[in-house]
Design a protein around this nucleic acid. Sequence first.
DNA 1: AAACGGATGGGCT
DNA 2: GCCCATCCGTTTG
Length: 195
Amino acid sequence: MAKPLSSSFYRKPTLKLAKDLLGKWLVHESHEGTTAGRIVETEAYLHDDPACHAFSGPTPRTQVMFGPPGVSYVYFIYGMYWCFNVVSGPKNRGEAVLIRALEPIEGIDLMRQRRKRGHALKDRDLCNGPGKLCEAMGIVSKLNGANLTVSQLYIAEPPKRSSHEVHTTTRIGITKAAHHPYRFYLRGNPFVSRP
DNA sequence: AAACGGATGGGCT
DNA sequence: GCCCATCCGTTTG
């Protein structure tokens, strides 16, 4: 398929990385098969941001956020769901980019098998939310801390670069620091979680 | 179309 | 014990 982006891609300010990740492909080569999707929606979480898990300093859960960028941060939420982030910022900053939605590209049958009631879902409902995309892609806690610049779970340049317009809004589902314009998505894309 | 509430369990005060 | 970067089925307008 495609080749993982190298570590230099991740060495940039987190807000820029959140926008640069749009249009890239997220690929998971698992024992069940390969799934891939185009990233269409992201959110940034910054070190001076009360909504960020790492805001109050490192804990066992947020350890990987304080490591080098280009590593995965996977956390468990609401007793049921996983969410996938890309660690960002200089080492020790504790910043990350949440991947909120994908446009399914490869392994759509496998995505349907993994998703609850997947056979009744339209393609657009397979990965249009952070918990949904982890279910469809098979992303679970053992991928926490994975290096995204090598195979298995990685981010790649798409084969054809397509032009797109980035739209910026406030983040979804948070109460603290809710006014910051840190959510980014491809304008007009039908695979985002919400317009 | 929007609003609501239940499911379900780890993290941290 | 409360909070939580969610999802989905049901109810309401």
